[in-house]
Amino acid sequence: MRIFKSILRKLKLGGVFYWLFGTLITLIFAFPMIFMMVSSLKPDQQIFVDLKSFQAFIPAGDVSIQNYENVFKQVPVFTFLLNSAVTSAIVVALGLVVNSLAGFALSRVSWKGQGIVLGLLIAMLMVPFETIAIPMVYLVSKLPWVGLESGSLIFKEGMMNSFEVQILPFVASAFSIFLFVQYFKSIPKELDEAALIDGASWFTIYRRVIMPLAGPAFATCAILNFLPIWNAYLWPIMVIQEENLRPVQVGLQYFFQMNVQWGEIMAYTTIITLPVLVLFVAFQRAFVASIASSGVKG
């Protein structure tokens, strides 16, 4: 009887609610993506006519890949994708190191002035980027920087029109550091003390004790820091003047001349959104992996 009951509960009732709720969630959250992909196959006028009904989510009518052909004709899609991929990969990679070290320093090591630094970092989250953009442009155009000219390294003024101007300002992220701080705080302090007694250096503790336990925090920061770089728009508009250095979101604006090309916009946004979702699927495995590694059963 008990076994039967539990099977019923597990398979039927619980299962039914689980899948029911899951289906509901899918309906609520997936529809913009479906709309985007479906519309990317339709001509502009049909997109708007269909938007008045559920037709908007059904690939029917005058369906073709014409929009995609136009997108590739009109915009150097691969260049933009590659630029965004390079920029965001470097920002995420450097950012994970720099920010996790900072988070470690602010949560598990004690030193004078760390409270002030943490306060300063959180305060920086409160500055809307739009309001400091112009002073930032002025600053990066004045900063001494190194560059290559005729094959040799030279010092120059400013870093406009480069990959580094799209990377360096965004490597250190107050948001990430704060997330690492809060996450590291949840890991028992005793682990550090034990390692110290064993003669480990602080770097070893960071590298061998804390990092392996913080997989979900690293995965979260990787995903969440990737987004603003992939979505960067105002900044590259201001500091990038060469087309071959531009990221994907600037490319989107190519379709907003006087007559907005909605079909192409849907096709282009489909092209630039899919890689992000694939990346998300890849990274979120870390949530599962870390549980296994710390020996905890679900």
Binding site: M160, I237, Q241, Q253, Q257, M258
Partner: peptide
Amino acid sequence: IKKFPQADYNESVVAAAASKS
């Protein structure tokens, strides 16, 4: 030639003026 999207062309120009470029 350097080409810009129309939407925020003015911001590109203003930023160029601020950075003397």
